[in-house]
């Protein structure tokens, strides 16, 4: 990796956020974290991450809306979106892909698997 990829990790659960932050940092990503939708949108406004790990159910703005925002913003046209959600119904997954997400991973996930997929996505 020539230059560290910028990754934005979004989840309202502090422990999941904790593990994801550690995992991504360990794999050489430049990590930003957000605990809710509002924080996410603020960070997106100021930064251009290469990939966003996005939870769907959050207390304020839901992940789908954020994905829509990313996919419709010129600045983020190269930004990849990876949903990481406990919503495991086919209809929810389909909705994620329809909104333009590159990946949809259901919780709970295997760390190794997650990292491999994200790395593959970026290469």
């Amino acid at each position: 990796m020539n230059q560290a990829y910028k990754i934005l990790v979004v989840d309202d659960d502090p422990f999941i956020l904790m593990s994801l932050e550690f995992l991504m940092r360990k794999n050489g990503f430049d990590v930003m974290i957000a605990r809710n939708g509002t924080e996410t949108l603020e960070l997106l406004d100021q930064n251009s991450p290469d990939v966003v790990l996005l939870d769907i159910m959050m207390p304020d703005v839901d992940g789908y809306a954020i994905c829509k925002h990313i996919k419709s913003t010129e600045k983020h046209k190269l930004c990849k979106v990876v949903f990481i959600s406990a919503k495991s119904k086919e209809i929810d997954i389909q909705k994620g892909y329809n909104l333009g997400a590159e990946l949809y991973i259901t919780k709970p996930f295997s760390n190794k698997d997650l990292v491999n997929k994200i790395t593959a996505l970026l290469d």
Binding site: D13, F15, M18, A86, T106, K107, P108, F109, S110
Partner: peptide, 14 residues
């Protein structure tokens, strides 16, 4: 159940 399970698994793996 998935939510706590996710962090348990992920953190345990770490």
């Amino acid at each position: 159940i998935r939510t706590p399970l996710t962090s348990i698994r992920s953190l345990a793996e770490i």
